[in-house]
Simulated assay, not measured.
Amino acid sequence: MIRFARLPLTANIREIQKEVNLLLNNQWLPHYNRHDYEGSWDVLVLRGLNGNSQQAFADQVQHGDFANTEILAQCPEIERFLNSLACEKRSVRLLNLKSGAVIKEHRDLELAFENGEARLHIPVFTNPKVAFYLDNHLLKMQEGECWYINANLPHRLSNKGQTDRIHLVIDCEVNDWLRSVFQHSESAANMVSEKELWDREKELKRQTIQNLRLQNTEATLTLAATLEQEFREKELAFSDPLA
């Protein structure tokens, strides 16, 4: 399983920076995972569920189809870059980690290349005092680069600089084109085995299933049953036949 990779994709960062500067006075939303951070971590939705710029969720638990928001129409260079990605785009957001803010270690369950979804990060504005750790690896992402991170792994970050850190974050569906891009990236050295990952995530899976059941709605109970079946299949696959 790939931990992270710098991809051979280049954005016209100076033009994107100009567009983002013009958006700074827009109504940015506080990130919805408020227990995961301290300080200010804000979101501007460029592509979201049902094209709603006021809906900051990046997954389909809330139900709906992903569509461009009216804000993306103000960003022709960002839209050009998105169109250059020959794969289906789901959520597209600008994430602003303000100066002095800290994001606590957390995981985005199942969000990984091997599970069919790849989260790409393009730093728009950053500074040398931003520290992004993925699975305890310090990633030094520079403005205009394109990075994949396996968000299913533990990650944390802080911005101890004097300026805000803004990333363009794109969730893509994996297809043959994206697989080809990954084959030309420096990702081979950043692997973790499926068994190692499963040993790390079992308890989180159990907690997720329990929390879904406590919500006790038709949708959450159905999802809990699906996750429990997947859990049992994984346990069986990785169990020691001699144990």
Rank of each mutant, 00 (worst) to 15 (best):
V174H: 02
A243H: 09
L9V: 03
G64A: 02
L46E: 02
L23G: 07
E230H: 12
S99P: 00
R80G: 04
W41M: 07
K140W: 07
Q54I: 04
I71Q: 08
L7G: 03
K195N: 11
T163E: 15
E233A: 14
S99I: 00
D199H: 14
N25D: 13
G116H: 01
A237Y: 15
L157D: 06
A58P: 09
L29P: 03
E88N: 14
L120A: 02
L46D: 02
Q215I: 14
S40R: 07
D108I: 00
R34S: 10
A118I: 00
T126K: 02
L49T: 05
L85V: 07
N33G: 14
K18L: 14
F231P: 05
E88L: 15
A243D: 12
N190C: 02
L23V: 03
R165S: 11
K104R: 10
Q62S: 12
Q215M: 15
G39W: 04
L204N: 12
T208H: 11
D199M: 15
S53E: 15
R14T: 15
Q55K: 13
E186F: 07
S91R: 13
A189I: 07
L134K: 01
Y148D: 12
S99V: 00
R47Y: 08
G51T: 01
Q17K: 10
L44I: 11
L109P: 10
V169M: 01
N175A: 14
K89F: 11
T69I: 03
T217C: 12
E173K: 11
D135P: 07
N96F: 09
Q207I: 04
C172P: 13
G48S: 06
H106L: 02
K205H: 09
L139Y: 04
A11V: 15
H106Q: 03
N33Y: 14
T10P: 04
Q54D: 13
R14Q: 15
L227P: 03
L120H: 03
Q27N: 10
R34Q: 12
L139V: 02
A73H: 09
N96E: 11
V130I: 05
V20Q: 06
G144H: 08
E228A: 09
L139T: 01
N190P: 04
G116R: 01
L97Q: 01
N83K: 14
F66A: 06
F81Y: 00
A151C: 09
S91V: 00
E145I: 04
W41L: 05
A225T: 10
V181N: 02
E117G: 01
N12G: 10
L94H: 05
V124R: 11
V92T: 05
L44G: 07
L139R: 05
A86H: 10
H35L: 14
R200C: 09
M1L: 13
N159S: 03
H137Y: 11
E203K: 10
E196T: 13
A131S: 10
L109A: 06
L44Q: 05
N21R: 13
L49V: 10
A189L: 11
N211F: 00
F132S: 01
L46N: 02
S193V: 01
R200K: 12
N190E: 04
A243R: 08
A237D: 14
E203F: 10
F182N: 09
E110W: 12
K202N: 03
K129F: 09
N26Y: 14
L153F: 08
E194N: 12
F125W: 10
W198T: 07
A118S: 08
